[in-house]
């Protein structure tokens, strides 16, 4: 099984570092994950893995998990598709994309962001059972305890609500 870690266009060193740590890799290994792909954005190097330059890919074998890391791709849809578990920063676009694919998602809000409304979104969706929200130090425990089958399916995009709202506003209804 495959894990995909993404930080989007941001820089989120602690998440990259954590996802390549022995504690997290062992937790993943214990849950049957064999491959981890890390989209590291503008983050800096982490421990024993020198992150690739602009377009390169770095790979290594650690704690029984095959690790692959790169910085950006024009679209991450294929990566979400390929993965069984996604660990992500709390960007709302990523959250919507991943949940609508029906994938298990662990969201780690970036605590260094000044206006930390991302954590609010992660917690609100976690409270409704759509995803898991974790802080960095808690990540191994959340991986060990998570159960994707218990997550509440996220509703698909429903354009009728906004269509009705605007039709009403403009006098069509």
């Amino acid at each position: 099984m495959r894990v995909f870690v993404t930080v989007g266009s941001t820089r989120f060193d602690p998440l990259i570092e954590a996802s390549l740590s022995t504690a997290v890799l062992q937790a993943l290994h214990s849950r049957g994950y064999t491959d981890i792909t890390v989209q590291c954005g503008s983050s800096r190097g982490a421990g024993d893995l020198a992150l690739p330059s602009e377009a390169g890919t770095a790979s290594l074998m650690k704690d029984g998990v095959s690790v692959e890391a790169w910085r950006f791709k024009p679209s991450l849809q294929d990566e979400y598709e390929r993965a069984d578990l996604i660990i992500s920063h709390a960007g709302s676009g990523t959250i919507l994309d991943v949940l609508r694919m029906g994938k298990t998602l662990i969201v780690v809000p970036n605590p260094t962001l000044l206006d930390n409304h991302q954590a609010e979104l992660a917690e609100a969706l976690a409270a409704r059972g759509h995803l898991y929200a974790a802080v960095i130090s808690d990540l191994p425990r959340v991986i060990e305890l998570m159960d994707g089958s218990k997550l509440v399916p996220f509703p698909q995009f429903d354009g009728s609500k906004f269509r009705a709202l605007l039709d009403e506003e403009m006098g069509y209804i």
Binding site: S92, L96, H117, Q118, E120, L121, E123, A124, F162, L166, E169, M170
Partner: peptide, 16 residues
């Protein structure tokens, strides 16, 4: 124009 503002899905507890 009539002005319609839609707050982001990311805003749960406080407005932007």
């Amino acid at each position: 124009p009539r002005l319609v503002y839609v707050e982001s899905f990311a805003r749960v507890q406080s407005l932007s």
